[in-house]
Design a binder for these strands. Sequence first.
DNA 1: GTTTGAATCAAACGTATGTTTCAATTTCTG
DNA 2: CAGAAATTGAAACATACGTTTGATTCAAAC
Lengths: 225, 225
Amino acid sequence: MAEPLDTSTGNTPAAHADTRTNLLDAAEHLFAHEGVDRASLRSITRAAEANLAAVHYHFGSKEALVREVLARRLGPLNERRLRLLDEAERDGDNPRLEAIVGAFVLPALEMVQRERGGHAFARFVCRTFSEPDEAFRDLVLDQFREVVARFSNAFERALPGLPREELFWRFHFTVGSMVHTAGLGFLAYQLSDGLCDPEDIEGVGERLIGFLCGGLRAKAVGHEA
Amino acid sequence: MAEPLDTSTGNTPAAHADTRTNLLDAAEHLFAHEGVDRASLRSITRAAEANLAAVHYHFGSKEALVREVLARRLGPLNERRLRLLDEAERDGDNPRLEAIVGAFVLPALEMVQRERGGHAFARFVCRTFSEPDEAFRDLVLDQFREVVARFSNAFERALPGLPREELFWRFHFTVGSMVHTAGLGFLAYQLSDGLCDPEDIEGVGERLIGFLCGGLRAKAVGHEA
DNA sequence: GTTTGAATCAAACGTATGTTTCAATTTCTG
DNA sequence: CAGAAATTGAAACATACGTTTGATTCAAAC
C-alpha cells in the first residue's frame, strides 16, 4: 500500500506525477462536457491513458478526484482576485469601482481564455454552483468566502451610502452575470446568432465591467442616498 | 399496451391523472435537490407513492420525464413574460426600460415564490442551463428563443444608439443575474450571513430591476452614443 | 355480469458503475 | 546490482440503475 504524494493545490512543482496530472486534465474536461455523474472513471482513465485503478491509487475515490479538480484552479483563481484587489487599493485609498469589479471579474475571464482547459473548468464550476451535492458546493463556497468578505468591503467603501443589504444583493447579481459569462459565454454566441464573440475576452471583460458598474452605481430604490 | 393521455403542457385540466402529476411533482423536487442523474426512478416513484414501472407507463422513459418536467412550467413562464411585455408596449409605444426588465424578470421570481414547487423548479432550470446534455439544454433554449427575440427588440428600442453586439451582451449579463437569483437566491442569504432575504421577492425584484436597468443604461465603452 | 382497456404491481433482466484485490512492473535508493 | 517502494495492470466484486415483462386489479361500457 503506497501513499501518493501530496499535491493539494497545483502549487507543488508537479512532483513527479504525470498520470496524476493527466487524470486531473481528463477529468476536468469530461466533468465539464458530460457532468460529474455521467463521466465515468472508465472514460476518464481511458482519456488519460491510465489504468482504471489509477484514480483510486492517486486520489482515493471519485469524489476526491472531483475535489482535486476544483481545488487545483479555484485557489489560484481567488488568490489572483485578492492580489488584484490589493493592487487596486494600493494605488488609491479609494479605488475606482471599475478597478474593483475588474479585479473580481477579469481573473475568471482570463483563466477561461488563457489557461489550457480553462473553458472546461469554468463550465464545470458553473455547474457546481448549482450542484445539489452540498459537499461540492461548499468546496466552492468556502474558497469563495474570503473573496466575498474582501470585495464586499471594497464595494462598501466605493459605494458609500448604499445599504448593506442592497450591497450584498448587487454583489449577488454581479456573481450571477460573471458566472454565466465565464462558464456559458457560448450561449451569448448562440442566442445572438453569432454576433457576440465569447472568445474576445478583452471586449467581453470591458463590456461586463461597464454593465456591472452601471448596475452597482444605480440609485437605490426606496432609499435616499 | 395503453397510451397515456396527452397532457403536454400543464394547461389541460388535469385530465384524470393523479399518479402522473405526482410523478412530475416528485421528479421536479428530486431533480432540483439531487440532480437528474442522482435522482433515481426508484426514489422518484417512492416519493410519488407510485410503482417503479409507472414512469415508463406514463412517460416512456426517464428522459421523457425530464422533458415533461421542464415543459410543464417553462411554457407558461415564457408566455407570461410575453404577455407582460405586450402590456408594457401597449401602455406606451416606447415603454420604460423598467417595465421591460420587469416583464422579463418578475415572472421567474414570482413563480419561485408563489407556485408550489417553484423554488425547486427554478433551481432545476438553473442546473439545466449548464447542462452538458445538449438535448435538455436545447429544450430550455428553444422555449427561450422567442422571448429573446421579442425582448431584444424591446431593449433595442428602449436603448437607442446602443450597438447590437453590446445590447446582446447586456442581455446575456441580465439573464445571468436573473437565473442566478431565481435559482440560487439562497446563496445570497448564506454569503450575506442572513442579511439578504430571498423570500422577499418584491424586494428582490425591485432591487434586481434597479440593478439591471443601471447596467443596461450604462455608457457603452468605446462608443460615442 | 361479462368484457374491455387502462392502470398498477412485483419481479426480473442486462448493463454500467465505483471500488477492491493482488500480481506484475517500473522507478528510485543504498 | 539488489532490494524496496511506488506505480501500473487485468480481473473481479457488489451494487444500483433504467428498462421490460406478464400477471393482476380496477373502472367503466355494453
